[in-house]
């Protein structure tokens, strides 16, 4: 409890109050994240409703195997994050470090796959916006109206999601250094828990992006 006492800010009365406040703040932040993405989901829904056949056709160009692999990788990372919170609550910091490193590995795999997906598209002239000029076998046929909108939305949504993934990577690196330096204990582990919440949201958004963009 001495560590917990050291982390109690003067404007809180108890550690529980401080922890609850931090957690509630994080949940509210996640609400704003959902609303940020909701604008893009609405844009997707509107254009899909107007041009369903173009969107269905264009989505075939996205490789569902790569998307599916990324889904599995992200789900695994969410699992290891959840486990790391479990172990930090028990004070088993060595396991926390291992789990967070596995998480980082998963995140890195996700970004590497994303990199190959993006560059594969760029190589055939699939760019967001005015640069859109598909060429090459199996790509040239996508030079049709409203296919650019699909790919613009694809790049924007996965791009902003990717930015969130990179932020998550930074947070995990920061957490690992803090765990190693012994900053957390079963009495105080708020940053681990909050980062976990953030990561689950990043994961959930991908769970919606994957079927909407790759499968249907």
């Amino acid at each position: 409890m001495s560590q917990a006492a050291g982390t109690l800010k003067h404007y809180f009365v108890t550690s529980e109050q401080q922890f609850d406040a931090a957690k509630m703040g994080m949940w509210l932040f996640l609400v704003t994240e959902i609303l940020l993405f909701s604008g893009m989901f609405v844009a997707y829904a509107v254009y899909r409703a107007w041009h369903p056949e173009v969107f269905a056709h264009a989505s075939e160009l996205l490789d569902w195997r790569l998307g599916g692999l990324n889904t599995l990788v992200l789900l695994a990372s969410s699992f290891t994050v959840a486990l790391s919170i479990h172990f930090v609550q028990k004070g088993q910091n060595r396991k926390v470090v291992v789990l967070l490193l596995i998480t980082l590995l998963c995140v890195a795999i996700f970004m590497v796959i994303k990199y190959f997906e993006y560059t594969g598209k760029f190589a055939h002239g699939i760019f967001p916006g005015a640069g859109y000029a598909p060429h090459g076998e199996a790509y040239a046929e996508y030079d049709i109206p409203f296919a650019p909108q699909f790919f613009s939305i694809y790049f924007i949504m996965t791009g902003i999601h990717g930015v969130h993934v990179l932020v998550g990577m930074g947070l995990f690196v920061w957490l690992v250094t803090r765990v190693v330096r012994g900053h957390f204990s079963s009495a105080w582990y708020t940053p681990v828990e909050l980062t976990g919440l953030y990561w689950h949201l990043v994961d959930i958004i991908w769970i919606f992006l994957f079927p909407l963009l790759y499968l249907i």
Binding site: E33, S38, G39, M40, G129, P148, S152
Partner: peptide
Amino acid sequence: VLATPVIGITMVLLFLEKLLQIGIFDPALG
């Protein structure tokens, strides 16, 4: 908390519309 993120993403989309011509808001691009 509930409304401001929407103007945020709207401004991002307008920004990208102007920068990249993504064709979501500009009728000339569909």
